[in-house]
């Protein structure tokens, strides 16, 4: 498949055939009848990692590399449960985590969630936090 261009946007109108829910339904299946008959669950109204990669392509094609990078991190994060996403965010707050805890988080992102782009962000944070004294200090009763 050739890369998307600006002309493909909005995908919901110009390229609906590319859009699927995380449960594998085409976007055109999200109809009122399906809602009423109870065929749809909240899971069907989530964005899929593939769609986020498509939006990343569009962002890249529109000259927005940082936005594209955010969409790639987001594509990885679709696999992470809501509560874990919030826990990871909290772990990145200043003085919330030791260097070891952040290293462990980065490893977990890579191995459990196949999220190398997110892992790289966490590793970069760990390095900066160490230099700026923003790591939690390791203590006996703390992790």
């Amino acid at each position: 498949m050739t890369a998307l261009t600006r002309d493909d946007y909005p995908l919901s109108i110009n390229r609906p055939e590319l859009l699927h829910t995380p449960t594998g339904k085409p976007i055109t299946a999200l109809t009122m009848d399906a809602v009423v008959s109870g065929e749809l669950s909240a899971e069907d109204l989530r964005i899929s990692p593939e769609t986020l990669q498509l939006q990343a392509e569009l962002a890249e094609a529109s000259g927005r590399p940082q936005l594209a990078g955010n969409f790639r991190r987001a594509a990885e994060m679709t696999a992470i449960p809501d509560a874990d996403v919030l826990a990871m965010y909290n772990a990145l707050r200043p003085r919330a985590s030791t260097g070891a805890a952040l290293a462990e988080l980065a490893d977990r992102l890579e191995t459990t969630y196949s999220a190398p782009v997110c892992a790289a962000l966490v590793r970069e944070a760990a390095e900066v936090y160490e230099r700026r004294d923003l790591l939690a200090r390791p203590t006996g009763d703390d992790d």
Partner: peptide
């Protein structure tokens, strides 16, 4: 939100 179109600038 399934299409992600509103995520663009």
């Amino acid at each position: 939100r399934v299409s992600g179109d509103l995520l663009q600038t």
